[in-house]
Design a binder for these strands. Structure first.
Lengths: 199, 199, 199, 199
DNA sequence: TATGAATGAGTGTTCATTCAT
DNA sequence: TATGAATGAACACTCATTCAT
């Protein structure tokens, strides 16, 4: 079942790679600019400047394209967060939280609507293994950080914090707010408050 | 444009009302039990025990049905929250927050998956006026409560708190957690923390 | 699995029946006049003077239409053959064989190319239960007749005779021969010869 | 029109020949093992270990490949039957018929499903000249044999006998019977019976 | 000459919506 | 007013065939 969500071939070079990327990028753009209901295979191919046939050469179906976009997003997040966790290791608690939040927001900042759209799609898709692992890793990184800092029930806290930030960031994007700094400040307040460390 | 999201007639009594309700209830059930992709007009009519023709007599289209469900949900929330705000008026801050949260969760508790599904649909639908007003009212009630209690920047806070609770509650439902009490406790912590009043 | 080969509804009256029949008849005509490769759902609908949507209201797919045509054919054959077996009961062996053959050919005579086309299609389709039963019944009727007349290994003989007649009749139709009488005479010779009763 | 069914080049030696053969063999295997619906040019190339481009270098299209397989089959049959007719020349009638039947079955015995599959395909394809000639030759050989033995209306008899044997052999293969000896015996009975020479 | 990426017309199928009964 | 048969645009997806490399 997993194969329906995986690319057919993952070409490493040349024209193939270009086509493959064009398809993914087109899908992303459509999702953001035209909405999920406009995300048809024909439209994707059109915007990618590619034929439908080519699209199907690389992906077994529409869902696989979206799934791949999600995977890319999660992979990026893992990289960013891992880096942030490392950087935070030597910091005091408050600035460390800031570092982590900044990393999380970085991702939302780059293409906020895309992130939101993909997170939405994720809910409708059957969760494939890799995505599941990536999400677990994200929570794991945060939980690890919290545990290290002596926070009790780190797993649960990580879960709640992720959900909380997701909710607030989504709402902000949705409302068209683009004051990332302000958002970050408020998230910091929320997180530290939740953790009982508003000092 | 708004008329596409409104019922054709809002019959207050008799067989008409029954048909109308049957349609709405059928749509709700399908959304929860069979998923959004199963939500077709024919299926709705079938589960409602009504002909498609009748369905179109009361609703101009599929979206109008969903929009009406959303409106119902928001109306319910307004009622619950207004009542809670009244009840909270005489309470100390902490218990007052608890009262408000309880009201908010009440709604999620009754039909959690439906609430989540509708909130998802809401994002895809063009926002009709009434829903917009209802949502503004919800935030207004909370903002009013906060202002009364001397919280600065009450509007913004209300916005964030709603988003925060929405995020955490959704994630909990999604993860299959059904420990409402626990959830409420964590939300309380988050809210009070955010407000800088963890006393 | 069987449901993919069965009609969706078998409407007994009115417009429905007419549409259903029009679809079947159109498919039969296309198969005969335009060939199997022209048998597309859109073409069927077009020739039936009906929309594709209607077609799918009555049949779950293209295969189901063909399967139904086959079933109709087999049902007809069973009726004809049963009647012939009854009529042959009181006849001497030679004329009795003639009666059975006449019945078999009757069917081919009515719409020879259709019969041939359907028999071809039958080989590509997963065999559904009813068709299987009908075919068994056909062979059973012949085997019963043979057994009654003291023919040894009646089952096997029935199998061979059916295959033999099928082969010869098909070839004749294919070659465009339309001398049914002559064909019948030759089949008789073949059958009686095979049975070792050329008297 | 005929050129669409002929190979582009018929290379007699070297790598070309190998490629050509690989394509034909791949097509044959697919037809037998995966069914006619799996017979796509891409799949053929894949199983042949060759690129689609190469496939089209040797054959103008898919049909040409199948047509060539059919021609090969018919050529084989002509060779076998010619040899058998020669061998039968000095035999008495009964054993002579046996010799001819054995030759015919030889062909079916080697790759029964392939023979059946190709005979099926043959019916869908426009008949190209060479195949027509080959089939005429087959009937001619049999008719010649019969005429020599004083059988009246030898042409017609040859036609019927071929059809008869084809029908019975096909049915046997289809039913999964693999008792070639038994089948031969029954065919003999049928043929001799038809010819009125059961002695 | 061989490759295989690219093409796009064509196929099966669905579903929101209409309208004759 | 209620029905449900009919509609057909739109969608996902395939595959024979071409052509730049």
């Amino acid at each position: 079942m997993d194969t329906r969500l995986k690319p057919r071939k993952t070409p490493v070079q040349g024209r193939s790679k270009a086509t493959c990327d064009a398809v993914l990028e087109a899908a992303a753009r459509i999702l953001v600019e035209e909405g999920r209901s406009a995300l048809t295979t024909n439209r994707i191919a059109e915007r990618a400047g590619v034929s439908v046939g080519s699209l199907y050469q690389y992906f077994p179906g529409k869902e696989a394209i979206v799934a791949e976009l999600i995977r890319e997003m999660r992979r990026d997040m893992v990289v960013l967060l891992r880096r942030a966790v490392d950087a935070a290791a030597t910091q005091a608690f408050r600035p460390a939280v800031g570092t982590l939040l900044a990393a999380t927001l970085d991702h939302h900042t780059a293409r906020p609507e895309l992130a939101r759209a993909l997170e939405r799609e994720e809910e409708d898709l059957p969760i494939d293994m890799e995505t599941q692992v990536l999400k677990a890793e994200l929570r794991g990184l945060i939980a690890g950080f919290l545990r290290e800092r002596g926070v009790a029930d780190a797993e649960r806290c990580a879960f709640d914090l992720v959900a909380m930030c997701h909710g607030m960031a989504s709402a902000a994007v949705r409302a068209g707010q683009d004051d990332t700094e302000g958002l970050k400040a408020r998230l910091e307040r929320a997180v530290l408050g939740y953790l009982g460390r508003p000092e």
